[in-house]
Structures are given as structure tokens and as C-alpha cells.
Design a protein around this nucleic acid. Sequence first.
DNA 1: TAGTGGCACTCTCGATGCGAGAGTGCCAAC
DNA 2: GTTGGCACTCTCGCATCGAGAGTGCCACTA
Lengths: 345, 345
Amino acid sequence: MTDLSERQKNLLLIIIRAYIDSAQPVGSKRLVDHYHLDLSPATIRNEMSALTEMGFLRQPHTSAGRVPTEEGYRYFVSQMINQAKLPASVQQAISHQFHETTPDVEQWMHLAASVLAHQSQGASVITAPRVEKARFQHVELISTQGRQILMVLVMVGGEVSQQLLTLAEPVSQERLSQTATHLNGLLTGRLMDEIEGVSNHSDALEQDILTLIGQDYRRTAESVSGTIYTDGLTNVLYEPEFADSDEARRALRLFEERSTLQDLLARTTGNSSVGGLQVLIGGESGWEALRQCSVVLARYGVPGLATGTLGVLGPMRMSYTRTIPTVRFVAGLLSDLVNDKIASE
Amino acid sequence: MTDLSERQKNLLLIIIRAYIDSAQPVGSKRLVDHYHLDLSPATIRNEMSALTEMGFLRQPHTSAGRVPTEEGYRYFVSQMINQAKLPASVQQAISHQFHETTPDVEQWMHLAASVLAHQSQGASVITAPRVEKARFQHVELISTQGRQILMVLVMVGGEVSQQLLTLAEPVSQERLSQTATHLNGLLTGRLMDEIEGVSNHSDALEQDILTLIGQDYRRTAESVSGTIYTDGLTNVLYEPEFADSDEARRALRLFEERSTLQDLLARTTGNSSVGGLQVLIGGESGWEALRQCSVVLARYGVPGLATGTLGVLGPMRMSYTRTIPTVRFVAGLLSDLVNDKIASE
DNA sequence: TAGTGGCACTCTCGATGCGAGAGTGCCAAC
DNA sequence: GTTGGCACTCTCGCATCGAGAGTGCCACTA
């Protein structure tokens, strides 16, 4: 592929911007009119023809304007991804909202999903931060009835998991409290991975609990991400490309199914470190249902300690200049919040 | 309004069924052909004309078939609401799914939402059961850093709430544990409402915690319903009435906004006891955005102890014969589960 | 008198055709 | 290299038209 001349490059960016704004194939005449270029339509046509040849643009039909190809969007994104910034006022407004809520992970997630959806006019998704290398802080055993007990497990960082267990035989609350106290002394600060290895031979009940804690932890750790929050699903219904076709249904359905969503989000795990953005354009995501869509993904949190994923889905024609800096900014904000939370321990 | 003759009544039910199946205005000819009635089209026309006069049917335009009015649907529902049953095989299949999951409220909610959406081909919504007159079971205070502590509060029934508190001054974990133990002795089994009244004058820290517990409880109790789970939002996009119009967007948007959803669900609180179904047809719901929709709602749980709400949203043309018994059955199932859970204490 | 067959009438919907508009490619000229 | 001109193409909106489905009414019948 030949390199783009400076003029071709500028032209391509303008064309894509114009298409993103208008949602309609852009032709040489309009382009010159609206963007006061110092060139004649004929020249533009020649360049457009070249860009089409190179695979950045295509024509929906002979003698219609040009529309960006996936390739074109990719070029566009690669050009602006590192320079797009969110206006300072918007940054402040968002920060403000976060610092006004209760310092509670669930609130943060809801707010982040809402902000992303609202700013980008797309569908947003975010997973709660998952603590990697979680450390044990505290366990509580509460007798409910007979052989059933409620186990409340607190990890360093404040993550709480609760589970209803059924023991082999009834145990008194007193006995349970003793066991919990003993376990707490034994396990505090330990990595959750190693807990099952801590054997003390002293007590069958204790041993059982130990095993159950380990099982519970592994069970939740298996799923790549924790709870998934979404917002703004209906936003994408407003896009003209989804006006009548059932393309929209399929894309939204994907977003409703948490299993596929997890798969999608899992893609960021390996490919990008915290701070790096990933933009999946059209077919890149590998999902047939997302052929017409793009997804902007980012990881947030503190690598190696606690991370989560967030993203925005929109039509391939989404406003990348708006979405990308928003995703980046929110990811950074959440990283700071998670960092503060961890540091305070 | 004159009473309906037996024949008119049957005819009306058949017409509505036909319209629900076909999504198209039903005319006299088709009706006779497909439902082998022993009458001529002309007779049917006369009766249809009468039913239209009475307000049960209407014509989209002169010389089109008839379409049910809200009134018509209401009559239809009132006729079948008490007799529609879910096939035993389906009941078994659903029960089976519930008894296979872990006995965990969150799992139940997800499953219920999924089953409702799938069976009814509509959008489902369900709130976690809220414990009314909650009783204190256990509190745990865990020191995190300096003045921040994590409070884990367990209510009778296993509902757990956690909150990060900031104290006036740092307190040792030992001191916290003592306080927690003392509070547990003092409060176990008490109604949450009364907790703040329990005054012991012995200890400033203890008094503080007491107040915070009370505050936390009242804060969560304020919201009419707990977490809201939804599923099958995209199902309604498949309905022909929502093919292109933005009617669908508005209805779905409503479903995305949890605040409005809460309002909607709150309607069942007063009007219907557990076990009773409520069917809101068209404008009945009061929401402009739901003018074209119907909602089937039910409460489940144990009245006075723990109840929640579930419902299904679909087009006014939804399959009531399928949705109503499904909602009723799932509500019953969840009531049993909640009941079992409470009884086991 | 309730039910029926016949008939004229109405309205939608899909297919067809046509003209305006927008855009292209190419070529000759600057 | 850039430009104006020109012939050509394709979509889209609009009007037309006929088929199909349905209705209302009326006269007739059992």
C-alpha cells in the first residue's frame, strides 16, 4: 500500500469526520462547500478515487458519495487516539459526580456506566474491579438453622463475599465463633490462593471451613470478571444504521447476554495494559453480530492488585473523538479511586 | 353498555386471539375460514359491528379488519386470567431449574428474570425480596485503616449489608471486636426499627455504631425495592409494532431507568396482595411511553416478612395466555423459596 | 326475525414508472 | 498538478394504478 500524501491524509480525516456527523455518504461537492477547502471538486474526486483504491473508502453504489471502510476508521482512530482530549469542564463535571457519591464500588460502577453512556451516546459496560491476588482479612461464621451456616468472607480491600453453607452436622454458634476467631488469627493477610494449603490438623470443622473458603474463592475467581453493569443500551437504537434492520437487535442481544459480554471484555485482559485503550472496529471483534459496531475498551485499576474493564459500544460510525477520551478519562478516574482505596489499608 | 351475548363473547375472544397470533387486523372472511365457525361472514360482520359499537374493537381505517381496543384486551384478560394454566411439563422444567441452582437470592433473581423473559417473549423485571420488619442478627466491625472501618451487618434471613464508615478517631481492631460482640449480645433478634432506641449509655463508640446501623438501615429501607434485575429487553424489539417507530426506544428507555421502573413496580404494593396478579393494559399504567404496551405484575414472598415484585412488559398484543400463568407460576415458586428460607430459621 | 348471499364501495399495499438531484469518471484545457 | 465541463449512473421521492381484502347495506329466506 502506497503511503498517503499529507493532503490525502487530511482529506481522509475530514471525510470520515463528515460522515460521522451526517451519517450520509459524502460527496466531493458538499465537502468543498462545507469545509471551505481550497480545491475544486474535481481534485477532491481524484483524491477520493485514490483513497478508494487504497481501501480507506468505498462507494455504496456507483455514483454515490464515499463511506469509510473499516480500514478507514482504523486509520482515523490511529491518528486521533493519542491526541483527543475531553474538555476540562467536562472532566471536572465528571470528577465532581464521582467525588459526591458514597465511596462504594457499586455506586461507582453505576455512575461510570451512566457517564460513559451519556457522554458517548452509546451503550456502556463495566465490570467491578476484581482483586487479583486477593488477601484474606476476616471470616465470620453465623449459625442460621441446624446444619446451615452463613459464611461472610472479607478480603483485604473490603471486598465481601457471603455464602450459605451446609455442614455435616449441627454446630453451636459458640463453637462457630471460636473457629472463626482462630481462623482469623491464622489467615489474616494470607493470599487467598494459599489458604487451602494452610493445614493445622487440629480440628475437623476448621478444616472443612478452610476447604469451603478455598472453594468459594476459586469459584468466583474463575469467572474472568465480576458483576457486569451496563447502561444506555437504548442509545444505539437512535442511530440511523439501526433504524429498522434487526442488526440492532442482534447487537443488543449480545449486550444482554452476560456470558458473551464476558468473552468480549476478556479480550482486553491480555492485549492491553491499564491505561491503554483498545478499539475494536467492525468485524475485528470477531462477533458476527457486531459487524456494524465498534467497541472502545479499557482496563482500569491497579495492575496486579485490582483491575476491571470498561467499554462503550456504538455503531462503527460512532463519535470516536468523543468516546475515546471519555473512556480514557473514566478509566483513569476509576484507577485513581481504586488506588486510593487500596492505599488506605 | 349492553351485555354481551354468549355468541358475541365467544366471537370477541376468538378475534382477540386471532389478532394476538397474527398481528394483523382480523376480517370476517378469514375468521370463518380459519376458525370454522358455523356462521356466514355476513353474520360475523353484524356482530363485529356491534362489538365495535360497544368499544371492544376498532377499525384502523374504513374497510380494514378489526383490532382490539384497550377495552377489548381488558375484557379478554378478565375472562382468561383465572383459568390460564401453564402446562405441567413447563412447570416442572422451571421448578427443576430453580432447584438446581445454589440457594442464593441473586441466582434466583437472575434465573427468574431469564425464565420470565424466555417464556413470555417479553422484557422481564424483578426486584429482590425486601425484608419488611427486618431483624438484627449480627454485626461485624473490621478495621481497615485509621478511622475507616468496614461494617458488615447480617439480618435474620441472611440478608447482608456492608458499609464503610469513618469514625471520629482511630480505634483498634480489638476494641472493635469487643464492641461488636457486645452489640451482638444486645441486639440479636431485635427489629431493626427499634435499634436506635436501644440506649445503654455505657460507651460512646458503641452509641455511634448503633446510630450508624440505624441510619444505614433506614437509608436502604427508603427505596421501595431493592436491586432490580431485568432480562429480555431485546425481545420486545422483535414485535412488529415496534419495528421502526421510536415507540420501542421510549418503552425500553423506561425499562433502563431504574427510578421509573421502581415507580412502576411500586404500583403493585398497595393494589394487590401476594398471589394476585395485576395487568396494566395500554394507558392504564399512566406512562405515556407505555401507551402501546402492557405489563403483567405480581408480588411474591411472604406478606409482612419479605416480599418482592416481578413483572413482564410486552406489546399490548402480548400473549396473555402465556405470560399470565408464567408470571403467576414464577411468583408462586419464588414465594415458596422465600418461605422455605425464612422457615429455616 | 335472525341469518345469509350479493353487491357496490372504500382503503391499503405493492409494483411500476418517471423526473429531480447528487455524485461520479473522464477528458481537454489551463 | 489542477480545473471546468459533460455525459452518465444510481437513488429516492412521488404519483399512478390495479389487485385484494374488507366493509356496510339490502333484499331475501327459513
